[in-house]
Amino acid sequence: MVKKVILNGVEIQVEEYEEEVVHQPNGEPLHKIRFAFKVRSDEYHDITTLLYQQTFDVSVPERDLNFRGTIQNYSTSVTNLYKKNQVGDFRLELIETISQ
């Protein structure tokens, strides 16, 4: 099981992980990953600042997978983790960006 995903050098410990290859109309294969992770209130600012970047160098070391990806879908169980000792469930779906 995949235990971490690295986005722009930031390691995220994951709880759930799915991976697939999707094909563009021209047949070009693109990687797509979905994962869930916990965010504590003391990490909230750093994680949301990272996610605002929207496009990342993605690495999944246990799968030897590396690609440039962008957020396709994102959700969280909490919209404000600035309250001390809160924990939110985040879900993120990234798709490989098309090479130009």
Rank of each mutant, 00 (worst) to 15 (best):
I95H: 06
V39F: 12
Q86K: 15
L30H: 08
P29S: 07
R68H: 13
G69E: 08
Y44E: 12
L7D: 10
K32A: 04
V22H: 01
D64Y: 11
N66H: 12
I95V: 13
S99P: 04
D46I: 06
R40Q: 15
V5H: 07
V87G: 12
Q86N: 14
T76F: 08
R63E: 13
G69K: 05
Q72N: 03
P61C: 03
P29F: 06
H31D: 07
R40W: 15
I47E: 09
E11I: 08
D57H: 13
N66G: 00
P61W: 09
Q53D: 15
D42A: 05
E43Y: 05
T79S: 14
K3C: 04
R40I: 07
N26G: 04
R68Y: 11
E28F: 09
S59T: 10
V10E: 11
T49E: 13
L81R: 14
K84L: 15
L50I: 02
V14A: 03
T48R: 10
T70S: 10
V5N: 06
N80I: 13
Y17V: 04
T70R: 01
V2W: 05
N26F: 00
I12C: 03
L92K: 03
F90Q: 05
E15M: 02
D57S: 13
E28G: 00
K3I: 00
V14E: 01
D89F: 02
I95P: 00
H31G: 01
V39C: 14
V60D: 07
F67L: 01
V22F: 02
V21A: 01
E43A: 11
P29I: 02
G9P: 04
E62C: 04
V78C: 12
K83D: 14
V2C: 07
F35L: 00
Y44M: 03
E15R: 06
N26S: 10
V78H: 15
D64N: 12
S77P: 02
N26V: 01
D57T: 12
I12V: 00
V60C: 08
E28P: 00
I6F: 11
L92Q: 06
V14H: 05
E96L: 08
E28D: 03
E96S: 09
K4A: 10
V2A: 11
L50W: 00
V78R: 14
S59R: 13
M1S: 15
N66K: 12
V2N: 08
V5F: 05
I95Q: 12
Q100C: 04
E16D: 14
K38S: 14
N73E: 08
Q72T: 11
T48F: 11
T49I: 01
H23V: 06
T76W: 04
K84Y: 15
D46M: 04
D64Q: 12
L81T: 13
A36N: 05
V58N: 09
V21C: 00
D42E: 14
T79E: 12
L7I: 05
V14P: 01
